[in-house]
């Protein structure tokens, strides 16, 4: 059993959602993670705040936020246990993040 990181890529992190929409997403995310944890396959994870972010570029140039030139940004990650990349990808399919058009989840095996 390997560990895989499921990395949430948001197409446009600056888009604002309504509080009601946020609440629905929150519940769906908690239910999604709970479902993985109920299989004893959840290792850990974090959301990444969009507020007060910095991007440090070549030569130490600091820009505010991850939304300079690129639109795509990271929203968070979870780490799961899976027997294969396909099983890890199955977990990813259940994520509410994928309801957002253009959003993707990158599945990467953790190197030891």
């Amino acid at each position: 059993m390997d560990e895989y990181m499921l990395i949430f890529r948001h197409q446009d992190g600056s888009k604002l959602a309504s509080p009601e929409q946020m609440q629905v997403w929150m519940k769906q995310t908690m239910d999604w993670i709970g479902g993985i944890a109920a299989q004893n396959k959840y290792v850990g994870g974090h959301g990444l705040s969009f507020d007060n972010a910095r991007t440090v570029g070549h030569g130490g140039v600091v820009t505010n936020g991850p939304f300079g030139d690129i639109k795509e940004t990271l929203g968070g990650y979870i780490i799961v246990k899976a027997a294969s990349p396909d099983e890890a990808a199955e977990f990813a399919k259940g994520s509410p993040i994928l309801q957002g058009e253009g959003n993707t989840i990158e599945v990467r095996r953790m190197a030891h």
């Binding site: 519940k27 908690m30 239910d31 993670i33 709970g34 479902g35 109920a38 004893n40 959840y42």
Partner: peptide
């Protein structure tokens, strides 16, 4: 359901997994 979702993240047990599914 939400309490079980969190419980399973820090302390998995088959009983909690079954009860979580009942709550679901």
């Amino acid at each position: 359901l939400q309490l079980y979702n969190r419980l399973l993240q820090i302390a998995y047990s088959p009983v909690a997994a079954l009860n979580r599914t009942y709550a679901l």
